[in-house]
Design a protein around this nucleic acid. Structure first.
Length: 548
RNA sequence: GCGCCCGUAGCUCAGCGGAUCAGAGUAUUGGCCUCCGAAGCCAAGGGUCGUGGGUUCGAAUCCCGCCGGGCGCGCCA
């Protein structure tokens, strides 16, 4: 059996095209998966694509291609003879044995099924969440957490070495405002009162921090002490949330360390030395417009302090110097203007960093609906749904699956009432239920599941079970695409489809039948379904329960 | 005004390196448990894929204009 029948068939067909038209060296046949099963497991539109350039009818090309490849196809032994259809489609039906083999392969590979060993593993960093320690994590952070963790997992499954990193902006003006806010609260002021800081944080959590601070006998007039306490408090809070979300970072990187280590200073010097800067109105500017930016950017303000852009560049230099050849940053679309800027800064340094470095995944902000009205998300206003609340309401699995089940750049509406009132409608239950159902069948059966990996499978001949096996076979390709596109939502959609395919099969056929050969074969199929579901859910950070 | 992103079924959204691409879930309606979990399954209705052009044998998919929405456009982060 071929390791990958699809790739084998594509190779054979491409070779066939080469015989028809030797001049088309760039042409590669790519098989597609037809929507309708009558059209086979794979199909090729190569004849239609070639009809124009070759000046021949598509059907004639298809006929010729079929004739030329017939022998190779037969020798490969993975599919039935090619079928001609429609205007010039070539439809391919895999042999049952080929589909059955997938099951054995899955059971052999277990948790590793779907992934690959990269020929050239890359050292990749995914930076995400990176919330300022100025307040609790909200649903927007949740979306980023779910997306980032899943993307990291997808890349790991492709054999790469992935580091999950969290960057704390703990050195800027926001932190200062937080300290002032806590101090004001500690002095008994309310938001909006005379003496309340102009850019202060109004959330209730500020009051909590102030109360704790006073209880610890903190010195209210020592702003630096207040600052340290508040930041420590909120970082601890965020850690609790992240743990509750089942998320672990490998590295927590502090912006303040960039100042302490002199890296910010070094970056400014390097930028100045690059010849890409100039003085204007008392400030130092970088010609980012030379790298596609709308306007040049200030590096050093007229008050001699630096804009946030500088530590940002310094930070990304460390990513490069730490050996990350590929870096993926997750950010809200509200920060998309930083993309060009950061890249421009890195290019201006001229230290060999590639032009597209780093990659970005931008996600839209999450809109939270509750009671038919939108809940505004705003740290400043202090009125927003926190990640912790959401997890408490609908559970970690549902939050994870839900937040990752849509394209990052599509606006996301999280209907809290729906999630609250009718949790079982959540798609995650549908997928988890399929997994639990298989477990239940095994419990009923009472046999040794591990022994199924050597089971004979030729009894699996039904259309539904072969379709199910074929669906399982798609998993590795699906993961490849999802990793390439940095699009974990594809995994969520796949899992729903797989679960649906299984539920339909389960409803139509009995697993634990009298006939032993058929029973064991079907159990093996179920085991493969369970394994694939579990592997996919694991990538999304969602549990695969045995009972629900 | 400029830049980026997005307009697909009542609602929430997939599909967007063109063809076998008009889809899923949900909601509505009607069926299925003496049978391995009904948190499931089956069936029906519902969209000229925002709009007008262009490229192509063929466009939801690629290009341009327009309309509508989101986000940016600071010596804030």
């Amino acid at each position: 059996m071929a390791a990958d029948p699809k790739a084998e068939l594509e190779r054979i067909l491409t070779e066939g095209v080469r015989q028809i038209a030797p001049e088309l060296v760039e042409f590669h046949v790519v098989l597609e998966k037809p929507r309708r099963s009558e059209h086979g497991d794979y199909s090729s539109t190569a004849p239609l694509q070639l009809a124009g350039t070759l000046g021949k009818p598509a059907r004639a090309i298809a006929e010729e291609l079929r004739r030329l490849t017939a022998r190779s196809i037969a020798r490969a032994g993975v599919c039935e003879p090619l079928e001609l259809a429609g205007a010039g489609f070539l439809n391919i039906r895999l042999k049952s044995s080929e589909k059955q083999n997938v099951i054995a392969q899955i059971l052999r590979q277990g948790a590793a099924y779907g992934g690959v060993h990269a020929d050239r593993p890359q050292k990749i960093m995914v930076e995400f969440v990176s919330a300022n320690p100025t307040g609790p994590l909200h649903v927007g952070h949740g979306r980023q957490a779910a997306l980032g963790d899943a993307i990291a997992a997808l890349l790991e499954a492709q054999g790469h070495e992935v580091t999950r990193e969290f960057y704390y902006n703990d050195a800027g003006a926001q932190i200062h405002n937080l300290a002032l806010s806590v101090q004001a609260r500690a002095r008994g002021l309310e938001p909006g009162a005379a003496g309340w800081p102009q850019e202060g944080y109004n959330g209730d959590y500020v009051q909590e921090i102030a109360a704790e601070f006073l209880a610890q006998r903190g010195e209210v007039e020592d702003l630096e002490e207040v600052r340290r306490y508040a930041v420590g408090f909120l970082r601890k809070e965020q850690d609790v949330d992240l743990e509750k979300f089942g998320l672990r970072f490998d590295v927590y990187y502090l912006e303040s360390s960039l100042y302490a280590d002199g890296k910010v200073e070094d970056t400014v010097k390097a930028l100045a030395a690059s010849g890409k800067t100039y003085e204007k109105e008392g400030a130092l500017w970088l010609r980012t417009t030379e790298y596609g930016d709308d306007k040049d950017r200030v590096v050093r303000k007229s008050d001699r302090s630096y804009t946030y852009f500088v530590p940002d560049v310094a930070y990304h230099v460390t990513k490069w110097r730490r050996g990350f050849t590929k870096v993926i940053n997750l950010q809200g679309t509200d920060h998309h203007s930083t993309v060009t800027r950061v890249r421009a800064g890195l290019q201006a340094l001229g230290i060999g960093i590639p032009a597209g470095y780093p990659d970005y995944v931008l996600h839209s902000l999450v809109k939270v609906m509750r009671g038919g009205a939108e809940v505004k998300i705003s740290k400043r206003a202090g009125s927003y749904v926190t990640l912790r609340e959401l997890i408490d309401w609908v559970g970690c699995d549902a939050v994870r699956f839900f937040l990752v089940s849509r394209r990052a750049d599509s606006e996301f509406v999280f209907d809290v009432d729906l999630a609250l009132a009718r949790g079982e409608e959540n798609p995650v239950y549908y997928v988890q239920y399929a997994h639990a159902r298989v477990c239940s069948v095994f419990a009923q059966w009472g046999g040794e599941v591990a022994a199924l990996s050597g089971a004979r499978l030729d009894a699996l001949k039904g259309g539904k079970e072969l379709a199910l096996a074929q669906r399982l076979a798609e998993f590795p390709q699906l993961l490849l695409g999802a990793a390439r596109e940095l699009a974990p939502h594809a995994v969520a959609f796949y899992l729903r489809e797989l679960a649906g395919e299984f539920h339909r099969y389960y409803n139509a056929e009995r697993i634990l039948v009298e006939d032993e050969a058929l029973r064991v074969a079907r159990l093996a199929l179920c085991a493969a379904v369970r394994q694939t579901l579990a592997n996919g859910l694991a990538l999304l950070g969602v549990s695969a329960p045995e009972k629900m």
